[in-house]
Design a protein around this nucleic acid. Sequence first.
DNA 1: AACATGCCCAACCGCTATAAT
DNA 2: TATTATAGCGGTTGGGCATGT
Length: 279
Amino acid sequence: MWQQMVTVVFVPLLAYLVLVRMHDRGCDETFLRSSHISKYYMKISKEACVPAIVSAIGLNRCGKSCRLRWTNYLRPDIKRGKFSLEEEETILSLHAILGNKWSAIASHLPGRTDNEIKNFWNTHLKKKLIQMGFDPMTHRPRTDFFSTLPQLIALANLRELILDGRLQAEAVQTMANGAAAAAADLEAMNMLGSQMMPSSFPPTMPCAVLDNHPPPANQENRECYSMAGFGQEEPPHPLLLPPPPTEVSVVNHGDDRIISSYNIWPELLLDNQFMAEFA
DNA sequence: AACATGCCCAACCGCTATAAT
DNA sequence: TATTATAGCGGTTGGGCATGT
């Protein structure tokens, strides 16, 4: 009886005290990673023991704070360091499909927390996309005023040069033609943009639905953009687009004969609940 | 050296869903 | 069934640090 109590109650409690205390005093990461005691906390954290522990050791953390600190920082399987190119590409691809579903994205990146991915997105990837001229939410080329600002400034500078008479007549003619074409393109893009996404985005026009499951929002956007013929001349980087529906075949175990096949949105392939029902 | 600025990231906040009582 | 506690999630904040002036 006493032996059981010691094993079940006191050892995990002691382990957690040591873990938190040592970390709060700046214990090194190697200890946390190699230590087997952290696994006890994995068990007890699910059992509402945290508030008792918090009050017992006088930490300035509530249970919730402890849990967050564990999941986002102390957990031994957390991967540290910079994101690799592969991880970056994975995040971009998944974000195109899932949007700001950080936990869903994190589930496909072992060792990375949703918080870490969210921070990486907000501090790096989002800016990167904006600099590249893409809307970070839709992964589509931006059509708003600020995204075309550099081109507008270039046009304004060109006009100044022409008015100053600093350019040769022939060069002026060539550049002016190009500028006029660019301005027409810009105007067309902006007109289309204002028609497609005036105040409410994503657009609400009806789009294709497969197998009674609505397509992901980004896919819906893409369908609508595609129907409007938008962005067809300069397709965005493949990593920025959600992938098309995937064909899934149901095969007979006996003779490998294909019984039937379905088109399923990639987002649903990542959805365990849907796949369980599908199976 | 002192201050300003910008970046990074752990932690916090508020909300919803779920479990326990 | 109603209430309370906890877990999980996404958005946001603020402190520490590096760099620039």
